[in-house]
Write a protein that binds this DNA or RNA. Structure first.
Length: 328
DNA sequence: CTAATTTGACCACT
DNA sequence: AGTGGTCAAATTAG
């Protein structure tokens, strides 16, 4: 991958990259609006409202980036999570990346997106590789890596832990970036989108993602009942702008108060797309196969994997050590 | 039979 | 030294 090298990317460049990607995101959202309105007239007003909100937030974020010098550094990219949006990277803290036979980079030098969510599905297929009791937590932490690690070398990882305050929810932290692609899903979206907006050539390569890694396909909700989709609409009060300022955190940070909103939008979009019939993988939020009775629902396999036009395509590196940090 | 999960041990980081 | 992240053999499910 095009590693942008050491972490000394000038803030200006990062900002302009972020703005550039926001523009792509905005275009994508507009394209998506057209697409959705054509697909589902019944819920057109709803889709319209959702997209308008997203557009509004994106525009707002762009304004902030355009006028504020340090905005980019403090408000890293949304949609980054595991899908390669890397506003900045720095190898400095992980410079001694000798991962020998066993362990790779560890601990809190790594950045992640942390979200609180009620669903563990995020459009990617994960494979559990470990579980650990955590010191001050009543719940164990489960570690997952992308299923495509073996065949595509994808370095995305995440861990999942039950929320202490609300056991019905999970804390999901994403590390690394998805370098994998799920060819079975991408064509389902791209032609339609591209067809809806032939003037936007970028649509072919830069579908938008409002989620930490890809669209969280909340097909449990969207796939089973239309009413659920409406609920998501009601929930989706806060949107992309908040992701811009809060989605990235250091491992030691506490959760952003907007994490919930973050996921709501994430799920919202997933619900929209899901209800539009884009996903057709049969498995609707079911439990993936595998052993015994896992502590957490295992890998979600409904792969609605948007290929993300990254916000600030500073994707660097080739392994899970290429996390970046937001040095002040 | 294949693939995913479980689980104990190992190892790096703080 | 304690804790957390990962590995890999054993186990389980489809």
């Amino acid at each position: 991958m095009a590693s942008s090298g050491g972490g000394d990317v000038p803030a200006q460049i990062r900002e302009s990259a972020a703005v550039s990607d926001l523009i792509v995101a905005r275009d994508g959202a507009e394209t998506l609006r057209t697409f959705l309105l054509q697909l589902d007239h019944q819920r057109a007003p709803w889709a319209q409202q959702v997209i308008e909100d997203v557009l509004s937030r994106v525009s707002s974020a762009m304004s902030v980036l355009a006028t504020s010098g340090g905005a980019a550094a403090e408000g890293p990219s949304p949609g980054a999570g595991s899908d390669g949006a890397r506003p900045q990277q720095s190898v400095s803290s992980c410079g001694n990346k000798r991962k020998q036979s066993g362990s790779s980079s560890r601990r809190s030098n790594r950045l992640c997106t942390r979200t609180i969510t009620s669903t563990l599905e995020d459009g990617h297929v994960w494979r559990k590789y470990g579980q650990k009791e955590i010191q001050n937590s009543p719940h164990p932490r489960s570690y997952y890596r992308c299923t495509h690690k073996s065949d595509q070398g994808c370095s995305a990882k995440r861990y999942v832990q039950r929320c202490e305050t609300d056991p019905s929810k999970h804390v999901v932290a994403y590390y690394g970036e998805h370098t994998c692609r799920d060819p079975s899903t991408i064509p389902l979206i791209v032609p339609a989108v591209a067809g809806a907006a032939p003037d936007d050539h970028r649509s072919n390569n830069n579908l938008i993602s409002f989620g930490p890694s890809a669209v969280t396909t909340n097909v449990n909700a969207a796939g089973s009942t239309g009413a659920s989709s409406s609920q998501y609409l009601a929930m989706g009060g806060s949107t992309a702008a908040e992701q811009l300022s809060t989605s990235w955190c250091t491992s030691d940070d506490v959760f952003s108060s907007s994490a919930g909103s973050f996921m709501q939008v994430d799920e919202l979009i997933g619900a929209v797309v899901g209800s539009a019939g884009v996903t057709d993988r049969g498995r609707l939020g079911g439990v993936a196969g595998g052993g015994g009775t896992p502590s957490f629902p295992p890998s979600p396999t409904n792969s609605l994997s948007f290929v993300v036009g990254s916000f600030g395509s500073i994707a660097g590196g080739e392994d899970d050590d290429d996390m970046f940090r937001l040095d002040r």
